[in-house]
């Protein structure tokens, strides 16, 4: 059953690589919006693959149970909570008028705010 351990190790490496790429992305991207884009990478594939990798690597302890279930619960909670928090961060940044990068092609939301289709939330 050595190959399960190898599989776990490979998945851990893949997760670490994913986290590394998203850290590089955080440094290289030009504005806050694109930085959050690469940040979601870390939370999705990086974290999920790392968790599964740890679970597989510790296959000797599967006899105690709990491993698979807890890994699944962790993944479910990451998938539930992460998009909410990053959406709120990004939306707050947008309505605080953090500038978009010059590379930006279109901004439909701004057009609709100017045409009074969308209302800006009021400052408190």
């Amino acid at each position: 059953m050595e190959w399960i351990k190898w599989l776990g190790a490979v998945m851990l490496l893949m997760g670490a690589f994913s986290l590394l790429v998203s850290a590089i992305g955080l440094l290289r991207m030009p504005d806050v919006y694109n930085r959050v884009q690469t940040g979601t990478k870390a939370s999705t594939l990086g974290a999920i693959v790392s968790f599964i990798g740890v679970g597989l690597y510790q296959y000797e302890n599967w006899g105690d149970g709990n491993w698979v279930g807890r890994v699944l619960v962790l993944i479910i909670f990451i998938l539930l909570t992460n998009p909410v928090s990053s959406h709120v961060l990004m939306r707050a940044a947008y309505f605080m008028k953090v500038p978009l990068t010059k590379l930006t092609k279109t901004d439909k939301l701004k057009e609709d705010i100017n045409n009074n289709i969308v209302k800006e939330p009021e400052n408190e």
Binding site: Q37, P83, S86
Partner: peptide, 10 residues
Amino acid sequence: TLTPGTFTLQ
């Protein structure tokens, strides 16, 4: 939002 590269803003 979870898919990298796209992001729901509003």
